[in-house]
Design a protein around this nucleic acid. Structure first.
Lengths: 246, 246
DNA sequence: GGCAAGCCTTGACCCAGATCAACCGGGATC
DNA sequence: GATCCCGGTTGATCTGGGTCAAGGCTTGCC
């Protein structure tokens, strides 16, 4: 899989992403970035960064999905974040990486050499500002996930995960006044389990249960149809509509 | 309890906190802050901000401990963060509050009216920078907590919490070459349960178990002595020393 | 002193989800 | 086509922590 400049990368919303991804936009500081940015591709399953490594770059995901994972010495792992296209990787001002980053699907990253990027950030408050905003978003997402991990049942966890993936990946079925949504799961059952603090068997069982109850439809193991997002949100135990409805 | 300017507020480390707390330091932008900052005190248990409220201020904790909590409609709650002295509250650039904030102990806050603070931030990259750094720290802490919530046993959760509180509150027993630490729990059993994704009964039982096993000593319900922090860290399932040792 | 309210502890029991194990099905390789 | 492998499903059983319930210890109020 190669680096497609798709509408999925949402060019034009984030200045960093914008410049990184989209060759057709000559944004203000674009020139300054020449020579410090480069692209890298990773195959599904490949590690991108190991926790503790010295970071030499920061960057953003262009396409594919990467995961942030923490591991205990005894092997227990917890995924602590999903990186979707446009998400930023790396901590300006930090030496080492805090978590393992791995490609969950094939991934294209747009990287900036860290030093020059930090200098650029010094000179360009706009970037620092945008980065703060993105970090606050990530913090919100992390904290929302703490509620999922700490208090939700297995079924609610699955529903919450499906809702998140739907929110970021799915398309409304054209022509429908309904809340039908269709998307592909970008994660294995095991990866879902890591994200949800469950075992893969429980994930499998709960997905089967949701299918049996008509909340979702499955074609193969990955292709999901949600006939009515409102039912799914209800299962997620989440009164908020997740941004789907008005 | 009134607003003491104690060494606990760690004046001098963070520019924002520095200016907010310490009348004896005339830091560079101190003058500019006059007229936009004020202090507020809250009694233990009192709400500070409700989720969804329009935020009119940002600020930092001067003394006491506040908690960030998320609640589901059916009443299940999960604490998603602890705010200790020097921690920042509020999201520059955001309208509404994302979580409930409440005083866990008596709390003194140093507040800045939001609008002028944001303008100040525009003019002062240093502050934006510092804020980004603090937010990245919070993000790390939140993600570390996701591992605790998702993968640790009740006993490990308790040990992890005690370790965190010790790290930020405790004093090494003077004259000891050992790793003995002494501190007071600033949280009720219920608050601990909310933080750890447990019930208060389980918290109580596990604390009793740790006491029985000699990992901790208790005087009353709140005063804790840890004879050897290394044993506690081991119980936490955490190979890192949490910053205690060399 | 007596009483009530909070906070905490402990016991008995139960259940959601983990664990262990068997099996399925599709794709790659020979 | 036979075989293997990998991801997924399903069943049987076990158990950590939840739930329900009964006190205990402090503190404050009458």
């Amino acid at each position: 899989m190669n680096a497609p400049v798709t509408s999925q990368s949402r060019c034009g919303d984030c200045p960093i992403r914008h410049r990184a991804v989209c060759a057709r936009c000559n944004a203000d500081e674009l020139d300054e970035l020449d020579g410090i940015k480069y692209y890298r591709t990773y195959e599904a399953g490949q590690p991108i960064i190991w926790s503790g490594d010295v970071m030499t770059f920061v960057g953003s995901v262009v396409s594919g999905i990467a995961s942030l994972t923490q591991t205990m010495e005894d092997g227990r792992t917890q995924m602590v974040g999903l990186l979707l296209p446009s998400d930023f990787v790396g901590r300006p001002g930090r030496e080492g990486a805090a978590y393992d980053v791995a490609a969950t699907t094939d991934v294209v990253m747009c990287c900036f050499r860290k030093k020059p990027f930090e200098e650029l950030m010094e000179r360009t408050p706009h970037i620092a500002h945008r980065l703060l905003e993105m970090t606050l978003d990530e913090l919100d997402a992390a904290r929302e996930w703490m509620l999922v991990l700490g208090r939700k049942t297995a079924r609610e966890k699955i529903a919450s995960l499906l809702a998140i993936i739907a929110r970021r990946d799915a398309t409304l079925t054209p022509g429908g006044a309904t809340n039908r949504m269709v998307f592909d799961l970008p994660l294995t059952r095991e990866a879902m389990a890591d994200y949800l603090g469950l075992t893969l068997e429980t994930v499998s069982r709960q997905i089967s249960a949701l299918r049996k109850d008509g909340i979702i439809e499955l074609e193969g193991k990955r292709h999901v149809t949600v006939p009515d997002m409102r039912l799914l949100m209800e299962e997620a135990g989440d009164d908020s509509d997740g941004g789907f409805l008005g």
